[in-house]
Amino acid sequence: MKCNREKLLSTLMKIVSDYYSKGYRLTLRHVFYKAAPYGLYPFNKRGYRIVCETLLEARLDGKIPWDAITDRSRYWVDPIPKYDSIDELIDDFHSVIMSQLGFNPWRFLNLYVEIWVEKDSIAEFLKPLAYKWLTVICPSRGYTSWTYVWEGIKRIKDYGHENNVILYLGDYDPSGLDIERHLQKAIEHFKVKCEVRRVAVKEEDIKSLQPSPLKKTDPRLKGKYSDYETKYGNKVWEIDALDPQDLFARLDKEFERLVDLRRWEKIMERNRLLRESAKALLERIVDSIPPSNIEA
């Protein structure tokens, strides 16, 4: 398949620009999936390499902002102080620290909800939603360890509710389906009442999503999912192919259905008043501190 690089570049730039203007920073893999329906490259490793090379060239040429694309598979440790004056700290205090001040709504709702995600890249996209609903997001990075599940079980047990829900986001393939089963099995082992509810990818999604080729080496094809190929052919559907806005909307609806919104709003109002009082108190304390004589 011959690739029209000029047309591909134009398509990739539009996709990245549209999402970036809405506040989304896509990964290379997300761009690969979003552009696939245009049929400008083979949907395989070679096509992925073409997309990565084209995007890199565009970024090096200044056609795509460097910040418009993110790499969520790597991180760094940064202990360097960020504030050299109290005033600078106060500027960020409300958003950075004040978000931790307030009443925990899950203590009052007779309900506890978490989001578990198969992939790191999706978990990063959902951070704004985590802050909106004050919920924990758990990227399992494939099959999660029993230790990781146990940490989640401890959180659930700590609340002592009978009604607990894990909203699960994962691929629709033998591994993604089995990861969900494994999670439910692990929860049952610890004798905790908790529903694992798949929000995406669902079977009804596969009609509208770009499929990926099935990995014939997947060992689950010889076990519990031996009939997968008969039912779905040589195709799998990855969570990366879903629109981030769609994921937000789905999860929002799940929370709205699960949560007593009237009680939720009362708790959020109490938190708002508490933070306003705390900020006013801190500002009075800061105003009483003499100016620093330290020179850089």
Rank of each mutant, 00 (worst) to 15 (best):
K2I: 08
R5T: 10
L12T: 08
Y19T: 00
S21H: 09
R29E: 11
R29P: 00
G39T: 09
Y41S: 02
P42E: 13
G47N: 07
E53R: 14
L56G: 03
E57Q: 10
R59P: 00
P65V: 13
A68I: 11
T70M: 07
R74E: 11
V77N: 08
V77S: 07
V77E: 12
I80G: 00
P81K: 08
D84I: 06
D84W: 14
D92R: 12
F93A: 05
Q100H: 14
L101F: 13
G102M: 11
G102C: 09
F103A: 12
N104C: 10
P105T: 03
W106I: 07
W106L: 07
V113W: 06
W116I: 11
D120N: 13
A123G: 15
L126Y: 08
L129K: 03
K132I: 06
I137D: 09
C138Q: 12
P139S: 06
Y143F: 15
S145R: 10
V149T: 15
E151R: 14
E151S: 13
R155A: 02
I156K: 10
G160P: 09
N163Y: 10
V165T: 12
Y168M: 06
G170T: 10
G176E: 03
G176Q: 05
E180R: 12
Q184S: 15
K185F: 04
K185S: 12
H189E: 11
E195R: 14
E195I: 10
D205E: 04
L214D: 01
K215M: 00
K216G: 04
D218L: 04
L221R: 06
K222Q: 11
K222F: 03
D227Q: 11
Y232G: 02
G233Y: 09
G233K: 04
K235L: 06
V236I: 15
V236A: 09
W237L: 03
E238N: 01
I239Y: 10
I239L: 15
D246S: 07
L247V: 08
A249N: 08
D252Y: 02
E254I: 05
R257A: 12
L258P: 09
V259D: 00
V259N: 04
E265Q: 14
E265N: 13
K266Y: 00
I267K: 05
R270E: 14
R272N: 02
R275F: 02
R275C: 08
E276M: 12
A280G: 01
L281Q: 09
L281E: 12
E283V: 10
I285R: 14
S288T: 02
S292K: 05
